[in-house]
Design a protein around this nucleic acid. Structure first.
Lengths: 158, 158
DNA sequence: CCGCTACTATTGACTACGCAAGCAATCCTA
DNA sequence: TAGGATTGCTTGCGTAGTCAATAGTAGCGG
């Protein structure tokens, strides 16, 4: 064969599979989440992280990192959640640059309601396609894929 | 434990891992692709599909399905690629509704150039994190996740 | 043949981001 | 303790993509 663009590297296949699986999962789940509760997947993630954080509050930067958004993304997302009354802003006494995002009681309520159906949707989506062992296996393999993988910190210059 | 929102279902973990792995991979790869060749991941996918299609042409609907976009998404994406001269439109003689997207010689050239570095980036991203067996394993597991999984088409009513 | 439904493609309005620039507060170095 | 660098956050602008509405075409069933 003429070695054209008919690439069939195992890694390219894996990447393609990753794209498709991601699209399938997020479409199904975000459609349900938005139809049923008017929340984005990212909205949900943010509420969840806040709920799990001590005092239900977090710095915006940290939140951004955890939910895979940029700083500006978080600002805008929180704008929406603030408008809906699910989170509030709170100043930090030790560092006046930081503005905490704090989950309100309403926000927690919202999260509880949404998580009920969301979790079961997730369960359905994955469980009907994979069994317990496969699930764990998948999770660890995927976990490897977002390790830094690059430079050994500030390694010695040889 | 008070069974609050501290969900730790295996499926939810898998989903989280999927989101992160996807974000990590697409960020790295699309950054490189766009910096190096001014192409989106979707652009690349489209060029690739066209290159592999018979006569290097496809109906827009089919293209949309393959690259996981909606019909309108494809229209706009192709607008861009047409402007750059990488694809052309061609009418279909049997069905005047359809407009083929045809890969031009320039487009093929572009794809060749881009795929060189893109593929090696993919290789790097995945290979440094997983070995051959894991890669295949991952691919099949992910593959299961985008199977329809729902209604058996229009199956016989029992 | 006529009208009905189904399909392909495009368009307008909108959303969810990202990037780069900016501002204020803090930290660091000397 | 002044100067510059860094950090946290926001804002303006651009882009990729969606959904809903529209129009042209195709292929029915009567």
């Amino acid at each position: 064969m003429s070695s054209q663009v008919l690439i069939e590297q195992a890694s390219a296949k894996a990447f393609a599979a990753l794209l498709r699986a991601h699209a399938a999962a997020t479409r199904a789940l975000s459609a349900q989440l938005s139809a049923g509760h008017g929340l984005t997947l990212s909205d949900y993630e943010v509420l969840l992280r806040l709920a799990q954080a001590p005092e239900r509050r977090m710095r915006r930067v940290d939140l951004a990192e955890q939910v895979l958004l940029t700083a500006s993304g978080i600002t805008r997302l929180l704008d929406g959640l603030e408008e809906s009354g699910f989170v509030e802003r709170a100043a930090c006494s030790e560092d006046r640059r930081v503005v905490y995002a704090v989950l309100t009681e309403d926000g927690l309520e919202k999260l509880r309601g949404a998580s009920k159906s969301h979790l079961s949707q997730i369960e359905t989506h994955f469980r009907t396609r994979l069994d317990e062992g496969e699930l764990e296996n998948l999770t660890t393999l995927l976990g490897r894929l977002d390790e830094a993988g690059e430079e050994p910190a500030c390694g010695p210059p040889e």
